[in-house]
Amino acid sequence: MAGEGFYQEYEVFSRRSDTSPMQYQFSLLAPNAELALVMAQENFLRRESASDIWVVKRSNIRKMTLDEKESLQRLDNKEYRNTKGYGYLKKKWRQYEQGMLDEKEIMSWGGKQSDENPHS
């Protein structure tokens, strides 16, 4: 494959820690992905930690046009998709003398040894 010039556009993404999502940083010019990668951290993350970096050639990104961005709009009527639409359950469970297993409660379970004794 023939080269396309020194000034190729690369988009740089990084993850702050192993558990953080990939985040867009900025773009840089480099002749190829390897050099883009060795320059990425020092250009955009000199004062931040990173546990991973991706460089993506810009021409490989399919972006949205202005018209297409219009397609991102939605009505605010989708309560059935969220816990918001099921808030009445809290009251219901109270009638059965049970607590509600809400998001806060469920997200707190992850992998932890349970110290709760169901018979107490």
């Binding site: 494959m1 080269g3 010039g5 020194f6 002749p31 190829n32 992905a33 050099l35 050639k57």
Partner: peptide
């Protein structure tokens, strides 16, 4: 330097 790497294909 820029000349040399302009003609290089991406990916070693």
């Amino acid at each position: 330097v820029r000349e040399a790497l302009s003609s290089r294909s991406s990916g070693m």
